[in-house]
């Protein structure tokens, strides 16, 4: 249970560990994009954690990292093809950041720090918790930026007209994430 909950807030991969910042900033132009990216990464995290902890005893220590990367890249390719087939609009929006899940430090980080030392079940749960923590942070950040930028959340208009458009553009991503991190730090310290 603890393996699951720690990823959500206390060890949130984005807001506390500061891993995987590139996709975080790149895809969170709307809450929906954030959620889509978060779930895609969650799937990769669970599957790669599971498979890596299953095969960890057969992999010589020296070629550990390359083997992990191949496993991760295979699941990323699965996500890429499935999303292209069934959610082409989302695939178009996320674009380059789907193949870039391979180099997301969270995935390799969890493989190395957790899955290579623990049982398959707890590794999968760790992947689920970390993935959902990632998805949660992405969705919240996406919602904040979408709301401040266009007055909508999940494309539902709450305030008519455009607000501060800068939040949907690049600078807003940095600024919104900075403040979100500061708030999380404050909450965790209490």
């Amino acid at each position: 249970m603890q393996n699951f909950t720690k990823g959500l807030l206390k060890e949130n991969p984005i807001l506390v560990l500061v891993l995987g910042t590139c996709p975080t900033l790149g895809v969170t132009t709307s809450a929906f994009n954030g959620l889509g990216m978060g779930l895609a990464t969650t799937f990769v995290l669970i599957m790669s954690n599971l498979v890596i902890s299953l095969v960890k005893d057969f992999i010589p220590d020296k070629v550990r990292i390359p083997s992990f990367i191949v496993i991760i890249a295979s699941f990323v390719t699965v996500v890429e093809l499935v999303m292209q087939g069934f959610l082409p609009a989302l695939f178009e929006q996320l674009g380059l950041f789907i193949p870039l899940i391979v180099v997301n430090c969270i995935v390799l980080g969890r493989a190395e720090a957790f899955a290579s030392k623990n049982t398959p079940l707890s590794s999968a749960i760790d992947g689920l918790g970390m993935g959902l923590g990632f998805a949660l942070a992405l969705t919240v950040l996406g919602a904040i930026r979408e709301f401040l930028g266009s007055g909508a959340i999940f494309s539902i208009k709450l305030i008519p007209g455009d607000l501060m458009l800068v939040f949907i553009l690049a600078p807003g991503a940095f600024i919104a994430l900075g403040y979100l991190m500061a708030i999380t730090k404050r909450l965790n310290n209490k």
Binding site: L169, A170, P171, G172, F174, I175, L177, G178, A182
Partner: peptide, 22 residues
């Protein structure tokens, strides 16, 4: 401010820099 130390303030700074590059 204590909460903004480290990465948060760096990100906000980067945001302002990105604004300049716009």
């Amino acid at each position: 401010p204590a909460g903004m130390k480290g990465v948060p303030i760096a990100l906000v700074t980067a945001g302002i820099l990105a604004l300049a590059f716009m």
